[in-house]
Amino acid sequence: MIPFSDFSNAIETETIYSFGEVHTFYKFFHEELEVAHIASQSEANVLILGETGTGKEIIARSIHEASNRKDGPFLPINAGAIPKDLVASELFGFTEGAFTGARKGGAAGKFEAAQNGTLFLDEIGDMPLELQSVLLRAIESKKITRIGDTNERQVNARIIAATNHDLEKEMEEGGSFRADLFYRLNVLSITLPPLRDRPEDIRLLARDFLQKFHERYENGPTAMEEEAILTLLSYDWPGNIRELKNALERAFLLAREERSPIRLKHFPPSIRRTKNKKKTEDLSLKKMEKERIQLALQRSASVQEAARLLGIARSTLYRKLKEYNLA
């Protein structure tokens, strides 16, 4: 059994790159987080790209909280979750009687509500094409007009947008996203890597999530069996960080009920099947460990760096190298 506190204790803190709530050992993620830091010190529009579950809203919120707008509101709006005929009223507001069912006295939209703060437009790729030109004008002019009104209102909201779509491809092929809006939003672009590209972060993320679960539930398991950890490292995580968090919370609660360490059986079947598949392919846990070490060595310039990526002490790695006869 491995205590949660030992998941990454062999890695010196200076190897961790952090921005806001985001922490990583993955060196290719460093550059993207550096762009996020630069974005926080500017007023430029930001476009965050990445698969579902990679933490786009967390990055957006971190940019806001590190900026000079941190005392203003951070308002997220999911352009893909709002009915098509309500997107405009959500963004720009409406006057009394503007449409059937409009609230008495009207209401301000998100642009006005985010005054002196940040408006986070999530899933911007799902915004209806006919509303994209209106959004573009609001971003360029910093003025909006409520539905049913004729008066323009000055707004001061910083725009951060995010999508899991390939907007450049959509501009070229289907024309479902306006090029002028894309270039207006894409002043600073940040691409978040999927979790399968940064397996060295899984232990760190797991430790942080499990510590938060302890704070929330006040008690629970404090260790995880090695078999479960190795399976987490070998799983592809199609749902990325969100899937990892949900799987860990499930495992934490089941183990908490049993008053036991977290075991492989506590994870969802889709993750447990990863181990079964490896078995049918005659891949033992030892072979999985050997392959992970070989991958870390390929991605590292030294044994010390490889140990950091694996989250183990350098002496442990030397022992493993000798055990597996690896140069």
Results as ranks from 00 to 15, higher is better:
N9S: 10
E12G: 14
S18D: 03
S42N: 09
A44I: 09
I48N: 13
G50N: 07
G50R: 01
I58Q: 00
A60V: 05
E65K: 05
D71W: 07
G72W: 07
G72H: 03
G72Q: 06
L75P: 04
L75C: 12
A79G: 13
I82H: 06
P83T: 02
K84M: 14
L86I: 07
L91M: 10
E96C: 07
K104I: 10
A108E: 15
G109E: 04
G117E: 05
L135E: 00
R137D: 13
R137V: 07
E140W: 02
S141N: 06
S141K: 10
K143R: 14
T145D: 00
G148P: 00
T150C: 07
A157G: 08
A161R: 04
K169Y: 15
K169D: 15
R184F: 10
R184K: 10
I190E: 13
P193C: 04
P194G: 00
L195R: 01
R196N: 01
D197G: 11
D197V: 05
D197C: 04
D197P: 07
D201P: 09
R203D: 07
L205E: 05
D208V: 08
F209A: 00
F209D: 00
T231Q: 02
L232N: 01
W237S: 01
N246F: 06
N246I: 01
L248E: 03
F252M: 03
F252K: 01
R259Y: 12
R259M: 09
P261T: 01
K265Q: 08
K265C: 07
H266I: 08
P268F: 02
P269C: 03
I271Y: 01
K277D: 14
D282I: 14
L283E: 08
K287N: 02
R292S: 04
Q294V: 13
L297T: 09
R299C: 06
A301S: 15
V303K: 11
Q304V: 11
E305A: 09
A306M: 10
G311D: 12
A313E: 13
S315T: 15
Y318I: 09
R319I: 12
K320W: 11
L321F: 10
